[in-house]
Amino acid sequence: MVPMELAEALAEAGRRMDARGWVPGSAGNLSARIDETRIAITRSGVHKGRLTTADIIAVDYEGNPLVPGQKPSAETLLHCQLYRLFPAVGAVLHGHSLAATVLSMQGGITFANYEILKAFGYATHELEVRLPVYENDQDIARLANFIEPLLQNEPPIGYVIEGHGVYGWGTSVEHAYWRLEALEFLLACELERRKLK
């Protein structure tokens, strides 16, 4: 159901995220668009640093597994939402880094004057960019419904769920990884700046 090349790319991204400490335990989830009706996503409860291609399963855009009995990530609907809303999104990566988790519990997150903001397509570093922080909710369908109009009104560079972790995306698995890496760098910088104050 999932093209092997896509499954391998997601498994590799999981290993890279694990090496950076962004997906402790079985935290996080990774996905990629297969086509206009299917998404490849990590199955529930697997360690992202030890992913195999068998751990990447296919779901429809409502988050339903295409093979009976397979269980996708609990947060599948948040991935599906991004593919539905933004046709250019080809992959979504979600991690639980220390910086994202801690900063999200301190209120809003704004990045100003960082050169690496250019990774998100800005022509200059001389600007402020807000990273939305959404309140955590164990009811993922309700959380997705809350987030949707906010995403549509002002498409962000990513977002964070409070006390949880960060979502980043891109046109491909590799592009999504680069953008997540830039987000994690920004979050780590902000955490260090707050420690210095």
Score class of each variant (00 low, 15 high):
119 A>L: 08
173 V>L: 02
186 L>A: 08
31 S>Y: 09
153 N>D: 14
164 H>Y: 07
13 A>Y: 02
42 T>W: 01
161 I>L: 12
94 H>N: 01
65 P>W: 08
28 G>V: 07
137 D>R: 06
23 V>N: 05
4 M>W: 05
63 G>T: 06
137 D>Y: 09
18 D>C: 06
33 R>P: 05
164 H>R: 09
31 S>T: 10
92 V>E: 05
54 A>R: 15
55 D>A: 03
39 I>W: 03
41 I>C: 03
84 R>W: 05
151 L>P: 05
147 I>V: 15
46 V>N: 00
140 I>P: 01
157 I>E: 02
82 L>M: 15
142 R>S: 14
24 P>A: 10
190 E>F: 08
122 Y>L: 10
157 I>S: 04
6 L>A: 05
9 A>Q: 11
80 C>Y: 06
40 A>R: 04
49 G>V: 14
34 I>F: 04
160 V>I: 15
121 G>A: 12
15 R>W: 04
61 Y>R: 05
129 V>R: 13
54 A>G: 02
67 V>I: 14
6 L>Y: 06
36 E>L: 13
116 I>K: 10
135 E>G: 12
181 E>M: 04
71 K>W: 06
125 H>E: 13
81 Q>Y: 01
50 R>T: 13
136 N>K: 07
62 E>H: 13
155 P>D: 10
116 I>N: 08
95 G>H: 00
83 Y>L: 05
52 T>P: 00
56 I>N: 00
187 L>G: 09
140 I>C: 07
18 D>V: 03
36 E>C: 09
8 E>I: 01
5 E>I: 12
167 Y>M: 07
129 V>M: 11
108 G>V: 06
193 R>H: 11
37 T>K: 14
95 G>E: 04
175 H>I: 13
89 V>G: 06
140 I>W: 09
157 I>P: 07
35 D>A: 09
118 K>D: 06
60 D>Q: 08
57 I>R: 01
48 K>G: 06
91 A>N: 05
71 K>T: 14
107 G>W: 00
127 L>C: 11
126 E>I: 13
151 L>I: 14
47 H>N: 08
9 A>M: 08
180 L>Q: 07
34 I>S: 00
105 M>I: 06
118 K>F: 08
143 L>P: 05
113 N>A: 10
109 I>R: 00
33 R>G: 04
92 V>G: 06
90 G>E: 11
106 Q>M: 14
157 I>A: 04
147 I>E: 02
95 G>Y: 04
159 Y>P: 12
189 C>E: 12
20 R>C: 10
148 E>V: 08
78 L>D: 02
107 G>M: 01
72 P>K: 01
163 G>N: 07
163 G>L: 07
137 D>I: 10
94 H>S: 01
166 V>C: 13
185 F>M: 10
8 E>C: 03
158 G>D: 02
1 M>G: 04
140 I>L: 09
173 V>Q: 03
93 L>F: 07
139 D>Y: 03
80 C>W: 02
68 P>D: 12
191 L>S: 03
81 Q>T: 14
29 N>H: 14
73 S>D: 07
167 Y>D: 07
59 V>D: 00
77 L>R: 10
170 G>C: 13
192 E>W: 13
112 A>S: 15
116 I>R: 13
167 Y>W: 08
150 L>R: 15
83 Y>E: 00
56 I>D: 00
103 L>F: 09
87 P>W: 12
194 R>Q: 15
